[in-house]
Simulated scan of single mutants.
Amino acid sequence: MTDWMGWLVVAGVLVIAELFTGTFYLLMIAIGLSAGALAAFGGASGPLQTLSAAAVGLVATAVLHRSRFGKPARSNAARDPNVNLDIGGRVAVAHWRDGRARVMYRGALWDVELGPGALPEAGDYRIVEVLGNRLIVANA
């Protein structure tokens, strides 16, 4: 097996490993290894192949790290329906007292507070945020 084939085999293994991890960093290293394969195909020496693979891999990783794909999304877990399944749920409020109420929700009593722009009227409300044992609601 020639040098350029070896570089591509290792790059292929990293691409497969990246499919299992879900990150793009292994893919960037695989791009660097592909650059090493191109250098080997062009007849470069072993150290030059390694240097080109390392340089391209480092640059690709740095570009990825600075992009929006390199950083995890920072979302407020109290408002994220993927984290808290209560978001979007409905509660019925009989009466309000100073913007607060107590309701029965999922078999337990919860404190309920009005969210921004919500009106304190008796009726159905939609849960928009969960802060500890308080449900922040908006008009349904």
Rank of each mutant, 00 (worst) to 15 (best):
F24Q: 06
F41S: 09
T21M: 13
A35H: 02
A17D: 02
A60N: 02
P116F: 04
G42E: 06
W96R: 00
G107M: 07
L8Q: 06
P116N: 02
V56M: 01
V91K: 03
E113I: 02
L51F: 08
P116L: 13
M28E: 09
A54R: 10
E129F: 06
V59M: 13
T23N: 13
R102M: 00
V130G: 03
S75N: 09
L109S: 12
M5L: 15
L119E: 15
Y125E: 03
L131N: 08
A118D: 03
P120E: 09
R106L: 03
W4L: 05
G46P: 00
A122E: 12
G89A: 07
V93H: 11
G88R: 06
K71A: 09
T21P: 00
F20W: 14
F69C: 07
A40V: 00
T2V: 07
V10H: 04
A118T: 04
A92Q: 15
G32N: 07
L14F: 05
R126D: 10
P47E: 01
V112L: 06
E121L: 12
A94L: 13
V112M: 00
L135V: 11
A94E: 14
W7K: 06
D98N: 01
G89F: 11
V103N: 03
L109Y: 11
L27A: 12
A30Y: 01
R100G: 03
G36V: 10
A35F: 10
W7D: 07
R100K: 04
F24K: 02
L27D: 05
V83I: 15
V137K: 06
R79L: 15
W4H: 11
R79N: 02
G89L: 15
A30K: 02
T21N: 05
G32V: 09
I29N: 09
T2A: 10
R97H: 15
G123C: 09
D124R: 12
L119T: 15
R102K: 12
A122W: 07
V83F: 05
S67N: 14
L64G: 01
A62N: 07
L26Q: 07
Y125P: 05
F69M: 11
S45V: 06
E113V: 14
N139P: 03
S67G: 09
R126E: 15
A17M: 08
G117C: 02
R134P: 01
L48V: 14
G36Q: 13
L38V: 15
R74G: 13
N82P: 01
D86S: 08
L58E: 00
R100M: 01
R106M: 04
I16S: 08
G107D: 04
A62C: 05
A140S: 06
V103Y: 08
A55W: 05
W4E: 04
L109D: 15
R134D: 01
G42W: 11
L119D: 10
F20S: 12
L58H: 10
I31L: 14
Q49T: 11
V15H: 12
G107K: 08
A44M: 06
L19P: 01
Y125I: 03
R97P: 00
P47K: 06
L114I: 13
V128H: 01
N76C: 14
L135S: 03
R102C: 04
A60W: 01
F41A: 07
K71E: 03
I87D: 10
G117L: 10
A118F: 00
F20Q: 10
M104R: 15
A73W: 13
A30H: 05
R68I: 02
F41W: 13
V83M: 05
P120M: 04
